[in-house]
């Protein structure tokens, strides 16, 4: 029974159980093309979830990262179109930097004015979205205008297979980017002082301060990283979908938060892991994408996501009350 104490094992078991159930209802689930498209759908939500994981471990919450992702993505793509620039590395550096700077704004306001993160990020989200839509533009950058290099990147596959009817499908190479960043965040959280300070701050901010952690620095690290990851993920999304839509990502913050909570991150702060989050993201994306396979009407999607979030939150709340870590 000791194994069951480990949240990640429990989450993995839930994942396997869900896969078996969905596979029994519709065996098409196990087709390689479906698994590949599921993995592809994991990338953008997963990258954002890594940032939200940091914030939730620190005891905060963020609803502004999707706005930051839009800002970074739309500004960079519009600039690339305007100056006719065609590259990959510089745009991603800029998108990451824009996200990071916006995250710095969150960190500054939350730390300086001691305000509840939810209210601050509600404000900055509205501010950034309003500025992008009102100041930069509301029109999509469609595939005919999108920089070819970004499209090329989004199309890159690790393996490409051929279906019986001659069409091809593949596993996106972006999954490697996601895996690399997940490992990096895992190492930072578990092996570095700044990573430990995030857990300490989440468990008890005052204690973290008295032990000697510079908590301002922790907040900057947490919110900047979340913003930077969101900015990066935003541009990646645009390159994978061949479209830059400044009105996109509305409501996605809830999916991401649900995934992180599903991954065993404590709603009270101080607990959470990258492995759990990666599993949580996979479960959420799988449930969402399998509704059609299971013959459930798409109108139920929001009810399902909300229900998943509530049950995940309730279970972690019960767990954390019984065993105060």
């Amino acid at each position: 029974m000791r194994v069951l104490r480990n949240s990640n094992v429990v989450i993995a078991l839930i994942l396997v159980a869900a896969m078996v159930v969905i596979g029994l209802i519709n065996p098409a689930f196990w087709q390689l093309s479906n698994i590949f498209s599921l993995l592809k759908a994991n990338v953008v939500i997963g990258l954002m979830a890594l940032g939200v994981l940091l914030i939730m471990i620190s005891g905060g919450i963020d609803v502004s990262f999707t706005a930051f992702a839009i800002a970074a993505m739309y500004l960079v793509v519009r600039t690339m179109v305007a100056i006719d620039y065609d590259g990959v590395i510089l745009p991603f550096i800029f998108a990451t930097a824009i996200g990071g700077l916006l995250g710095l704004m969150n960190a500054g306001i939350i730390h300086k004015f001691h305000m509840i993160p939810l209210i601050v990020t509600l404000g900055t989200a509205s501010l950034v979205r309003g500025l992008v839509l009102g100041g930069v533009g509301t029109s999509n950058v469609n595939i005919d205008e999108m920089p070819p290099s970004l499209i090329e990147l989004g199309r890159a596959n690790i393996v490409t297979l051929e279906r019986a009817n001659g069409t091809t499908f593949g596993l996106t190479a972006m999954i490697l980017v996601y895996a690399a960043l997940a490992i990096l965040i895992h190492l930072v959280l578990t092996r570095t002082m700044i990573g430990r300070s995030v857990y300490a701050y989440g468990a008890d901010p005052e204690a973290a301060r008295r032990v000697g952690f510079k908590t301002g620095r922790t907040m900057i690290f947490v919110y900047c990283t979340a913003g930077a990851l969101a900015g990066f993920a935003g541009l990646l999304h645009s390159s994978m979908s061949w479209l830059a839509n400044p009105r996109g990502f509305v409501g996605l913050e809830l999916d991401v938060i649900a995934a992180v909570v599903l991954g065993g991150c404590s709603i009270f702060g101080g607990r959470g892991s990258v492995i759990g989050t990666v599993l949580g993201v996979f479960i959420l994306v799988m449930i969402q994408n399998s509704l059609i396979l299971m013959g459930i009407d798409m109108t139920w999607q929001r009810v399902v996501v909300g229900g998943v979030l509530i049950s995940a939150v309730a279970i972690t709340a019960l767990r954390d009350r019984r065993s105060p870590a």
Binding site: I61, L118, L254, I257, A258, V261, I267, F268, D297, T299, W300, Q301, R302, V303, V304, V305, G306, G307, L309, I310, V313, A314, A317, L318, R321
Partner: peptide, 29 residues
């Protein structure tokens, strides 16, 4: 959810809000 299960109000109402909006979609299609 908040007083019985001791869920933080933010996450509890974020989830139920989603469910309520989802029910709106289900009712209206």
């Amino acid at each position: 959810l908040i007083s019985g299960l001791k869920i933080t109000p933010i996450l509890a109402t974020l989830g139920t809000g989603q469910v309520f909006i989802g029910l709106c979609v289900v009712l209206t299609g």
